[in-house]
Amino acid sequence: MRWTVPNILTVLRLLAAPGLAVMFLYFNRPYADWFALILFVSAALTDWIDGHLARSWKQVTRLGTMLDPIADKAMVVIALMVIVGYSSMSPWLVLPATVILFREVFVSGLREYLGDTAGTLRVTTLAKWKTTAQMVAIAVLFSQGVFEHYFGMSVFGMDPAMVRDILAGQVEDLHGLWWKYRGMAWTGHLGIWLLWLAAALTLLSGADYFVKAVPYLKDDR
């Protein structure tokens, strides 16, 4: 095994995946949200950096080829678990997250079954777009958690009617409620739309892999 810079970045991304959940175990919010957001975005950027460096420096290795998709899947699966858990199981998040998790398990099972012929299921451009959509959606949803917590802290103990008047512009906004609420609303809606888009791309790429695998699943081969 060659411990090149791209491989080290991939391993760090893999180790960062469980760190997302750890942030919410050992830190209070909003620090946990901030740390998870920074960790996730940093790790997601290494997904592009390590691949670019490996190709530019001609350091593509079997270790990196094997670990790269595993690191991506670990990041996405654990991040979705955390986000869904803190969303009180909102169906708007649970449904696309279920589609994404099902596809990842299904395709991983296909690759394991195909063994030596798993090269048939090489990463496609559609699969790369799927991963990008997942990463962006999750980053936006983590940022929504930041806005949500700051808004909640600002309105804690405040009369609901007063909050409505402030957001309506009828009372002076001394605590920045308007931009916190707007940030929470916009990132929440955008994150959900992006996650549904990622789920649609996930379904398409999973179907593409299945079609390619069908000839190798027939009993008369």
Results as ranks from 00 to 15, higher is better:
V99D: 00
T65K: 15
V82I: 15
S90K: 07
L101T: 15
Q59C: 14
V94N: 04
I38C: 02
W57H: 03
F40P: 07
F27C: 13
I49A: 00
Q59W: 10
F24L: 06
F106S: 10
I83T: 09
D33L: 11
Y31H: 13
E104T: 03
K73G: 11
I78H: 08
F40R: 00
H52Q: 13
Y86T: 14
R29Y: 09
A16M: 08
A32T: 10
V76Y: 03
V76T: 15
D50A: 01
G19A: 04
L12C: 12
S87G: 03
V77F: 05
A54W: 06
D68N: 12
T46Q: 05
D33V: 13
V105D: 11
I49T: 02
L9W: 02
V11H: 01
D33S: 11
M66A: 13
G109D: 14
L20G: 02
V107Y: 04
R29M: 11
R62S: 07
T10D: 02
L45S: 08
S87M: 05
R13D: 03
L37Y: 04
Y26W: 10
V94W: 07
A79M: 06
K73N: 15
F106V: 10
L15V: 14
R62K: 08
R29S: 12
V84S: 11
V76L: 09
N28C: 05
M81S: 15
I100F: 06
F24T: 12
L39D: 03
M81A: 15
P96Q: 10
L25G: 12
V99Y: 00
L95M: 12
V82S: 07
E104Y: 01
V84D: 12
V94S: 04
D50G: 00
V94Y: 00
A74H: 01
P69R: 03
V105E: 06
I78Y: 03
M75D: 06
Y86H: 07
H52S: 15
A44C: 06
A44E: 11
F106K: 05
V41W: 03
L67C: 03
Y86V: 11
M23I: 05
